[in-house]
Design a protein around this nucleic acid. Structure first.
Length: 614
DNA sequence: CCCCCTATCA
């Protein structure tokens, strides 16, 4: 090829200098077209001009003040659909600047979302910042842009990237608002990364973010969810140290914490102390305290507080009524639940999906399956979607009525019904198979759930552990406990109760006692079931009655009320050992406590007399 | 920044 010819070819590929001038001209032509088109969408046919576009022209057009921001967006959207003219990062920043000048912050967020989720555009914040034009507003724009970018990263759970922005602004004297920082804290909290929350908290302090009660509340809630009193107290201590007072949300969170841990007096105390702290209660606070009393089974007090709430001019909403209806259902008072539903409707509040589930569960627990199924029909008529709660509630109701086959059939078809089964669905299935003694099938479901990416939780393991221990396979039960701990799941009181029972039945009372003793070390509360199981364990073994009695009295000291099963076990143990007087004394005590002895108690007492006779 | 529902154990 001659050099001349080569030059000609080159010229075709790279048109020479005049391009710069024609860039200007092309840009102006496009501007005119855009202005003329007004709010009409751009059509690919109407824009032959666009074929001559290049990134430089795009930028010229976008920065032209004659082109209004909405036209910029219009052009942008058009180019994005056009593979050969995808706007580059610089064009994005120019558009962001135009939107910023027009105070169109919502639009800015959309554009930033495009940048951070697009593999070709995503880049370090410094690169974006370097594209910002110097100018009187440059610094302010950069500040807003970084704040927004940080927030968009946080909302997309791109934690590392968000922190990258945060560090960058720290080095450059730009400020990230506390509100934006909270978005990241919320993302971290949602993934259960409380340690990361604190690490970021320290960064906030270092970068001079003024930390208010809002940040503390956000971190506090991380501990509320897991009922971590230790962690919650630590947050409160820090607030005190920093001189940050509670606000109404802090009080609400504390009421929730105590309420969910059956510490109703403490919840009440927080509620009562609000005026002293200068905090006005609001509807949230009333809903929370009402929920506490509902959960504690004190409907009388809950309804009284509803009256007080009304009197103070707070209008109860779906949450308030949801809590009350739940309380009534849990107390088995379906008539009261019905009245509350009517009251709610008369106030124009829609009965939502949650309330339907609550009512369905209430009827299920009463064994009124037909009523529960009727509610399902009502939901359908009202066009309320069925979800995973709907199915698990109905399935567990069927299971409680021993309608296992129907429960299984429902759970196995959840997916066909357009709902993704969650851990609860699998756990109910596993529990059914365990109770039926079909460990093979239980294991199959367990593997199936793991394969489908549903993570087994503590309850799932509890069901399996109970299944194996009741089927005489304590080795497997112990292994499962280890497996759950290896997976980062914490055995709870029920796990230990189940294992203690298993060891006792297996005749390994020493093993059971070992588990019993390690509970306080594990921060697990020993409840009436724990003690009763252990007492029954001792009862089966000759010469251990005194050990059992020791625990029986320890219960009283720890304010754990003996129930029918506890008395039955203790009376049976004493009778077997021939200590009939003591057995009868407990029998009287039991009746005085308002408990109704069942046939097993009588058999024990009679059996005990028998031993004495001979 | 905060509130309602579902599953497991003697």
């Amino acid at each position: 090829m001659s050099s001349r010819k080569a030059f000609k070819t080159l010229k075709k590929v790279f048109p020479a200098e005049p391009t710069f001038i024609s860039n200007q001209e092309t840009a102006e032509k496009i501007v005119k077209t855009l202005i003329k088109s007004g709010i009409q969408p751009l059509k690919s046919t109407s824009s032959s001009l666009l074929s001559s576009l290049n990134p430089h022209i795009t930028n010229l057009v976008l920065s032209n003040p004659l082109v209004l921001p909405h036209s910029c967006v219009k052009l942008f959207n058009f180019l994005q659909k056009n593979p050969s003219h995808k706007p580059n990062l610089k064009s994005h920043v120019t558009l962001l600047c135009r939107l910023y000048q027009a105070r169109k912050f919502a639009q800015m967020k959309i554009v930033l979302n495009v940048i951070v989720t697009n593999d070709n555009l995503r880049c370090p914040v410094s690169e974006i910042a370097s594209l910002i034009e110097e100018g009187p507003n440059g610094m302010k724009f950069a500040g807003t842009l970084c704040d927004m970018l940080f927030r968009v990263y946080a909302e997309n759970k791109m934690v590392e990237e968000a922190i990258g922005v945060f560090d960058y602004v720290g080095r450059n004297g730009i400020e990230i608002r506390e509100r934006s920082c909270i978005v990241l804290l919320l993302a971290l909290r949602k993934c259960g990364r409380v340690d990361s929350c604190w690490r970021f908290f320290d960064r906030m302090v270092k970068n001079g973010v003024r930390i208010t009660v809002l940040t503390y509340n956000t971190i506090l809630k991380a501990y509320i969810g897991r009922k971590d009193f230790e962690g919650a107290s630590e947050v409160l201590r820090l607030m005190e140290k920093d001189g940050v007072g509670y606000n109404v949300v802090t009080s609400t969170l504390l009421i929730d914490l105590f309420g969910s841990s059956e510490r109703i007096e403490d919840a009440q105390k927080v509620f009562e102390e609000m005026p002293e702290r200068g905090i006005e209660p609001d509807l949230y606070v009333y809903t929370s305290i009402i929920n506490c009393y509902c959960k504690a089974g004190n409907m009388e007090r809950a309804l009284f507080l509803l009256g007080e709430c009304n009197q103070r001019g707070f209008v109860p909403n779906e949450h308030t009524y949801g809590a009350l209806i739940n309380g009534a259902c849990k107390a088995g008072q379906m008539e009261m639940a019905d009245i509350l539903v009517n009251e709610m409707q008369s106030k124009g509040i829609d009965v939502n999906q949650v309330v339907f589930h609550t009512l369905m569960d209430g009827y299920c627990k009463k064994g009124m399956m037909d009523e529960a199924l009727k509610l399902q029909d009502v939901m359908e008529k009202k066009g309320i979607q069925f979800d995973v709660f709907t199915y698990s509630t109905i399935a567990s109701g069927l299971y409680k009525l021993n309608r296992n086959e129907e429960a299984k059939a429902l759970l196995f078809t959840v997916e066909e019904r357009g709902v993704t089964p969650n851990a609860v669905c699998f756990t109910i299935l596993i529990d059914i198979f365990c109770k039926e003694g079909n460990l093979e099938e239980a294991k199959r479901v367990f593997n199936d759930m793991k394969r489908k990416g549903e993570r087994p939780n503590t309850v799932t393991y509890n069901a399996l552990i109970d299944g194996y221990s009741k089927n005489g396979n304590m080795n497997k039960a112990r292994k499962l406990k280890k497996e759950m701990e290896d997976k980062g799941l914490t055995p709870n009181t029920r796990t230990l109760n189940t294992l203690i029972h298993g060891e006792c039945v297996d005749g390994k009372v020493d093993e059971a006692l070992k588990l019993f003793r390690e509970m306080p070390r594990r921060n697990l509360t020993r409840n009436v079931v724990t003690y009763t199981t252990m007492i029954s364990g001792f009862e089966c073994i000759d010469g251990m009655v005194d050990e059992a009695l020791k625990l029986f009295h320890e219960m009283s000291r720890r304010d754990i009320t003996h129930n029918v099963v506890t008395y039955t076990a203790m009376i049976s143990g004493l009778s077997k050992d021939g200590r009939t007087d003591e057995a009868f004394k407990l029998y009287d005590e039991m009746k005085n406590a308002g408990l109704t002895p069942d046939s097993r108690v009588y058999r024990s007492l009679v059996g005990g007399l028998h031993i004495v006779k001979y």
